[in-house]
Design a protein around this nucleic acid. Sequence first.
DNA 1: ATTACTGTATTAAGCACCTAATACAATAAT
DNA 2: ATTATTGTATTAGGTGCTTAATACAGTAAT
Lengths: 122, 122
Amino acid sequence: MESFQNTQPIYLQIMNLIKKQIATSVFNPGQLLESVRELAMIYQVNPNTVQRALSELEREGLVRSERTIGRYITKDEAAIAQLHQNLVDEATSTYINNVLELHLSPEEILTTVKSRLKGDNT
Amino acid sequence: MESFQNTQPIYLQIMNLIKKQIATSVFNPGQLLESVRELAMIYQVNPNTVQRALSELEREGLVRSERTIGRYITKDEAAIAQLHQNLVDEATSTYINNVLELHLSPEEILTTVKSRLKGDNT
DNA sequence: ATTACTGTATTAAGCACCTAATACAATAAT
DNA sequence: ATTATTGTATTAGGTGCTTAATACAGTAAT
């Protein structure tokens, strides 16, 4: 059913999903992406919504569109590595800011992360 | 200016902000909260938006409203402690899910967090 | 040439969120 | 008693996101 939250625009969620897939080589550099209509089927959303997500990703240089052929993932592997690093950094900053605001000490933060990694806490 | 993102409903952002303030004793148990109109001034949003946020918090039992007096933070300190724990757990789960999806190993996750805590990375 | 696929564009409708402008009943302070 | 404040409710308008239904130009395969 590949559904989405309702608290954030779907096109942003799709952007983040595809970014993750590029960063983790689910999509390889230079690979031809599924078509707008196919992705719309997969995600169970309107083609216009997919189109919007992909347009934004193109604006960020992660994909490029070939007018009547389809969309390709960028071949720039350095950019992809950078993307991966940015996603990690952003997630980490957000998390640490969050728990610091909750008044956890650095030691408590580490303990919390460790216990979550050990236990099978889904 | 206390402004908000535009990717998430403002009333949800206000809810989370107040939750954090309750969980970290910025607001104490049983304390009288600022009025809807005052909070609207502080956050620079419409009073209706604050009203919505507070109504939801009331539905969750974190505040209670006294018809023509104002709103009180709950006196239930156990509930507040539970809230704090939930916020930490939720943030941690979200973070670890994120970086696992980015294919970081548990060791890499710990290293990443540690280096962020040591360096002055804002 | 026909067919099936690409990305792209447009129009209309519905929905959630946010704002603005009021209004009302009840309490506290004067 | 009057005044200022409280939470609450209502109406109207604007905006952004999403969907649906089309349409068009260009490419690939038959």
